[in-house]
């Protein structure tokens, strides 16, 4: 039996205001870099918190490397970097790393320090005085210092300038090349993840709308352009029409009469997000 990095069955999370996630089924194979895409409030952070065990599901289950997060807390081989990158602002970088060492049984001190040195962050600097990019690099060093097999990063690039984004992604990808760890990156900026992710999990309104290998998904869909008189193909995700022309994104192969192209990741994701919104409205 295959062990997945993440494996959700009928996963649901109900808050007082309503369902944050509902009936989610998905599998993330190990060794992949997965994009967790969805608008704000789609359930991305809820999903990550369920995987860490910080939240308990209302229905169903989520397994991390085959195990449900239980009373022992977060899976030993899972690391999670929350969106607000929780670091103690009054601590120095060196003190933050010492805290990481004390709190994590599988801590690799040499490795964490190497990541901090490569980021050119002064060890005696107070965390509160660091730039956004430096703070992210320190938080990443602490997350990776656990030597995780699965790392969940919630909007790691939000509030970083383009150079810092590039630095963070280069560091992360180099570490993935060494360790082969599974990565889940959430973002609402799809362009940030194009070319980086080989797996996609698209959430909208608390449900999984699309999942799978990025290349397979792109190959299974077509952007079709043709006369609006033409018969619509099967598997339409989204169709837009003007007086004469129709532009359709569909899960289909080539269709006679239509001009067909493979969509880009952004086109595909946007079509699914718009169609989910249209259904909700």
């Amino acid at each position: 039996m295959t062990t997945y990095a993440l494996d959700a069955t009928a996963l649901g999370m109900r808050y007082r205001r309503g369902w944050g996630l509902r009936d989610c089924e998905f599998q993330l194979p190990t060794g992949r870099i997965s994009a967790l895409i969805g608008p704000n409030g789609a359930g991305k952070s809820t999903l990550m918190r369920l995987a860490t065990g910080l939240l308990r599901p209302t229905t169903g289950s989520i397994r991390v490397l085959g195990e449900e997060p239980g009373r022992h807390g977060t899976h030993r081989k899972l690391a999670f970097l929350a969106q607000d990158k929780p670091l103690y602002r009054g601590f120095t970088v060196a003190e933050m790393l010492r805290a990481g060492a004390v709190l994590n049984p599988s801590w690799d001190d040499e490795y964490a320090w190497r990541l901090v040195r490569e980021a050119d962050v002064p060890p005696q600097a107070k965390v509160g005085t660091l730039s956004g990019g430096q703070r992210t690099r320190v938080a990443l060093a602490i997350a990776l210092g656990r030597r995780p097999e699965v790392v969940l990063l919630d909007e790691p690039l939000a509030d970083l300038d383009p150079l810092a984004r590039e630095d963070v992604m280069r560091t992360l990808m180099a570490e993935v090349a060494d360790s082969g760890m599974t990565v889940v990156l959430s973002s609402h900026v799809i362009a940030d993840l194009d070319g980086v992710c080989d797996h996609l999990l698209l959430l909208a309104g608390g449900r999984v709308r699309l999942q799978g290998d990025v290349e397979d998904l792109l190959a299974q869909h077509r952007v079709l352009i043709g006369s609006r008189e033409l018969v619509m193909p099967d598997g339409v995700v989204e169709a837009r029409t003007t007086e004469r022309q129709a532009t359709v994104i569909a899960r289909t192969g080539p269709v006679p009469g239509w001009e067909a192209d493979e969509p880009s990741l952004e086109e595909l994701a946007m079509a699914y997000l718009r169609s989910a919104r249209a259904v909700a409205a």
Partner: peptide, 15 residues
């Protein structure tokens, strides 16, 4: 190496 390429380009090492 894959590591050298991704450290320079920020693409996925699997690629």
């Amino acid at each position: 190496t894959a590591k050298q390429v991704v450290a320079a380009t920020a693409i996925n090492p699997n690629t």
